[in-house]
C-alpha cells in the first residue's frame, strides 16, 4: 500500500500488512480507511481535491493533451513514444470518480468509452483497460506496472507514481 497521505500513514501501512494475513473485518476497515484517505483528500476549503492523471515513474511524458488522453483511455493509443505498452487502469463504469474523470478530464460519457472498448474487443482491433475496484488499488497498480496510467484525486504524498499535467 502506498497511500501515505498524512501522518497516520504508518499505522495504515501496518494494518495493510496484517490485512494480508488476517480476516474480513480488517479488510473492511482497511478498505474504508484507504477509500477515505485517497478519495476524499479535502482541500483547506473543504472541497474535494481535483482529479489528476498519474503514471508509473518510467513513463517519460510530463504533460498529455486532452486528445492524447482520450486516445489512451479509449485504448486507441497503445504504445508510449519509447515503445513500451500503455497499461490503462480504470475504476468501474458506475464509480463516481470514473464518471467525473471521463466527463471532466476526457470530455466523454462513460458509455462512450465502454462502446469503444467493446467494439475493439469484438472486432479484434482493441482491448478493454484493466478495471480496479477502488482508488487504493488504482494507486497500487499504477505504482507496480511499468507503462501504467490511471487517475486519482490529487494527493501530495503518493509514492511510486508520477503526476502528469493534462493540457
Amino acid at each position: 500500500m502506498h497511500t501515505d497521505i498524512n501522518s497516520s500513514a504508518t499505522p495504515l501501512r501496518d494494518i495493510a500488512c496484517q490485512h494480508r494475513r488476517t480476516g474480513v473485518a480488517c479488510i473492511t476497515l482497511l478498505y474504508l480507511l484507504l477509500c477515505t484517505a485517497s478519495q476524499a483528500a479535502p482541500t483547506p476549503d473543504g472541497a474535494l481535491a481535483p482529479l489528476q492523471v498519474y503514471t508509473h515513474p518510467s513513463v517519460a511524458a510530463e504533460t498529455l493533451s486532452k486528445s492524447s488522453l482520450r486516445a489512451i483511455f479509449a485504448m486507441r493509443l497503445t504504445l508510449w513514444p519509447d515503445g513500451t505498452r500503455i497499461q490503462v487502469f480504470v475504476l468501474p463504469d458506475k464509480a463516481p470518480l470514473h464518471r467525473q474523470f471521463t466527463k471532466s478530464v476526457l470530455g466523454l460519457f462513460p458509455y462512450q468509452l465502454r462502446k469503444t472498448w467493446d467494439k475493439g474487443i469484438y472486432s479484434g482491433t482493441g482491448e478493454a483497460p484493466i478495471q480496479v475496484s477502488d482508488p487504493a488499488h488504482m494507486l497500487d497498480k499504477i505504482a507496480q506496472t511499468p507503462g501504467a496510467i490511471g487517475y486519482l484525486r490529487q494527493g501530495q504524498h503518493y509514492k511510486g507514481v508520477r503526476r502528469v499535467a493534462a493540457q
Partner: peptide
Amino acid sequence: MQRLNQQAGIRVGRIKNSLGFFNET
C-alpha cells in the same frame, strides 16, 4: 508507427469489413 498523436498499422488475415458504424460487430 506510433506517436502520442498518431498511430498507423497493418492487419493481415481475415478481417471484418470496415463499413459504417456497426458492421465489424
